[in-house]
Amino acid sequence: MMKFFRFYALVFSVVALLAACGSTEDFDASIQLDVSAEGPFFSGPNTLQAEYTVNLKSLIANKEFTANDIKEVKVKSVTIKIPEGDAIGIDSFNNVVVQLASDNAPMTNIAILNPINGNGNELTLTSSADAEIEDFFKQEKFIVLVDWDFKEDSMRPEMHSNVKIDLVFKLKQ
């Protein structure tokens, strides 16, 4: 009988150990930055971009972690806002695409909206269900690219947009 218990105790502890090794916890985080480009802007997709500096310490409130702790990062939602007071509105564009690029991770398409309907100055995009972007957070910086598809030529000297990317970090425990 003791043998029986000992055997199951051993099996249980091995399973528990394995489960502990593989277990992860999800944390919400979000990054926000201004992307911009100089004009003029011709009809068709025009790229606004900015560099984002990764700072893991400030990404998740009350949670300290390192790049090694990151198992997976997925995109939850992406919102773009054209600054208040800008004469241009979202009805000036056919569609918008958001991508990430960096020296050490392959360019990844994280969100789109095509077609853009309505007006105003804020948009919530359809975010990619499959994009895995953890590699971007394992380096110092990456680039966020926003391709606005202009309906018509615009001679404005520059354009800015504010991008907010809500993320889910899966961290090893």
């Binding site: 068709g44 997709p45 056919n94 569609n95 695409v97 991508q99 690029a101 392959p106 360019m107 398409n109 789109i112 095509n114 359809t126 975010s127 990619s128 269900a129 499959d130 994009a131 391709d147 598809d149």
Partner: peptide, 25 residues
């Protein structure tokens, strides 16, 4: 206008082909 209708990631299939980056990195 043509879109990326064959993308394995279904959520991105409405990405327009004009402006699409097919060569990367």
């Amino acid at each position: 206008p043509k879109v990326d209708k064959n993308n394995p990631d279904e959520s991105l299939r409405s990405t327009p082909l004009k402006g699409y980056r097919i060569l990367k990195d």
